[in-house]
Each structure stands twice: as structure tokens, then as C-alpha cells.
């Protein structure tokens, strides 16, 4: 995420468009609270979004999604408790009115996708890399020239 931040911030990666639907952002505990990347995390979200709507407590003091500490890889054993304690995250997301939740963590994204179904949030949870790969400007010479190939053939 730090690398993506720097690529976007320094213009090494340029975007052809931003996400137009309202977005919000998850602060994964091990990336933000423990990893110290709160500011960069938010800045990436802002750079990718036209309408960024931070959750209450956004940043270092955000709530856990409920999937951390091994809860996701623990599988079925933890499912019920995961859905119950995730109510707080579900309410936070709903309150922002966002349609896209940016989630830079595999654990959090699995949890937030489950919460979306459980609490009927009507959102889509996506990784930063998905948005960047989709919305970045690809230099002309890297785009395959299908017509030329057909002519040659």
C-alpha cells in the first residue's frame, strides 16, 4: 500500500479516472494501528475517489472489522461470533452512505464481504490494487495493437 501510495503521489502511476460512486475506507489493524500507515492509507483512498466519505473514528482509532487476530482463517468455528461483533463495522459503513469500501487487507475484505451479506449493506468491498489496475493510464506502447496484428496475419 505504501508503494502504491508513492506511485500515485509521485505521478509514477497516473489515473484516467477516479471512482465516482461514494467510497469509504477500512483501516486494517495491522496496517494502520500497528503498521503506522494511517495517513498514507487515507491519502490513497482520497486520490482514488471523487466522493470519499471517511467513517467515524477513521485512522488509528478505527474499529476492527471483526475478522482480525486469526478470526477469518479460523473458519466455521468463529463464523457466528464474527458476524455478531462485526455489527459495529457494518453500522459504521452504513452511516457513511458509501457504495464502495476500499479495503487494503485480505482478512478485512473477506470479513466486510461477509458483513455485506449478513447486514445487507449494498456495498462492494475492493482492494486498492483492483481500482488502481483498472483506472490507471496504460502507456500507448503497452496496449496491444490488435488491428496491426490482424494486418500482418
Amino acid at each position: 500500500m505504501e508503494l502504491f501510495h508513492d506511485y500515485l503521489d509521485q505521478g509514477i502511476i497516473k489515473l484516467s479516472k477516479k471512482v465516482t460512486e461514494p467510497t469509504t475506507l477500512q483501516d486494517p489493524c495491522n496496517v494502520v494501528r500497528s503498521g503506522g500507515l494511517a495517513a498514507k492509507n487515507r491519502h490513497v483512498a482520497e486520490m482514488l475517489s471523487e466522493d470519499f466519505r471517511p467513517m467515524d473514528n477513521q485512522g488509528n482509532y478505527n474499529y476492527c472489522c471483526g475478522g482480525g487476530g486469526g478470526a477469518i482463517p479460523m473458519g466455521g468455528e468463529m463464523r457466528k461470533q464474527r458476524m455478531k461483533c462485526g455489527k459495529i463495522k457494518a453500522e459504521q459503513i452504513r452511516a457513511t452512505g458509501a457504495k464502495i469500501v476500499l479495503v487494503p487487507c485480505h482478512n478485512c475484505i473477506d470479513q466486510i464481504r461477509d458483513l455485506n451479506k449478513e447486514y445487507d449493506l449494498g456495498i462492494k468491498a475492493v482492494h486498492f490494487k483492483e481500482i488502481i489496475a483498472h483506472n490507471m493510464i496504460v502507456p500507448e506502447h503497452m496496449i496491444p495493437k490488435e488491428e496491426d496484428e490482424e494486418e500482418k496475419a
Binding site: R33, Y63, C64, G67, G68, Q81
Partner: peptide, 8 residues
């Protein structure tokens, strides 16, 4: 089952 070790 009652803690994610989130450190909050």
C-alpha cells in the same frame, strides 16, 4: 471467540 487482538 471474544477478541480479535485489534489493540484498540
Amino acid at each position: 471467540h471474544e477478541c480479535n487482538m485489534c489493540r484498540r
